[in-house]
Design a protein around this nucleic acid. Sequence first.
DNA 1: GATATGTACTTGCGCCGACAAGTTCTTTCC
DNA 2: GGAAAGAACTTGTCGGCGCAAGTACATATC
Lengths: 142, 142
Amino acid sequence: MYKLDESLGYKLFQGSRLMTNRLNQYFRLKGYPITHEQWQVLSRLFDRDGQTQQSLASLNERDEPSVSRLVANMERSGLIERRPHPTDKRINLVFLSEQSKRLQDEYTAIAEQTIQDASSGIDPDVFAECLRTLDQIRRNLS
Amino acid sequence: MYKLDESLGYKLFQGSRLMTNRLNQYFRLKGYPITHEQWQVLSRLFDRDGQTQQSLASLNERDEPSVSRLVANMERSGLIERRPHPTDKRINLVFLSEQSKRLQDEYTAIAEQTIQDASSGIDPDVFAECLRTLDQIRRNLS
DNA sequence: GATATGTACTTGCGCCGACAAGTTCTTTCC
DNA sequence: GGAAAGAACTTGTCGGCGCAAGTACATATC
């Protein structure tokens, strides 16, 4: 007998939504009006500024249209700016705004706090093995 | 140094999205035009038919407006129907359509196939512990 | 060097999510 | 029994996703 509450997909889905909701709420409460999707993009840019939208889509395993509209919103909010590629006119390069660069540490602290909230009371070894299992799931479905 | 790819939230998010995408694709490929959110509602109704929208929202930890529009869409597609509560005029009771009842087994098989896909090559004990860890995360954030 | 193929990105569509605000109906409480 | 509080649901707004189709540009091919 199939039970939704006991299924892997449902547990993942609920866990994911609870974490992203909490992250969104922290950002909002602390006065940083960004979403968790936007945070993912910013995080990629903190790692390497000036990427193409294609690159961001690939890293975050999202499709091109999603990234297109996401960065368009982020540009309107002043989180990033898009600059044309010097030689290839098809390409937009996405750069952090000065404001976003200044807020990197605060954003990161909020993300880490969310993980703290979620993982409290879990044995570190068990937690690490769970992360490895999640990696395996990702490989299985990619 | 914070790394998005190594963070719990991101792994959960990606795992969840990969699973729900695959489930959506299976449904579409097999000619059942339902989404994974609709499947969650159907699954609750298979468990107990004739629930209120409030009850569905609570079980799936979603807010009322989401359920309201979700079931409105599902009613338009003939997946469910809403009937007024016999005495309390505020309440809609949500019932499975005959078609949905017939398809329960097929839907369930697809959901189970998706879990199979995701969990292949994972030791059963490790998998079970991962599920328990996900439960703990859910409790921590609820 | 013109045509075909491919790449980066955008737009349109339908669906979903969270929050805020509003409507209708029920219950409570004085 | 009338006002206040609460419950169930809907509507509006904005952000986001996935797919399909379209545009503009670059590269390959002959």
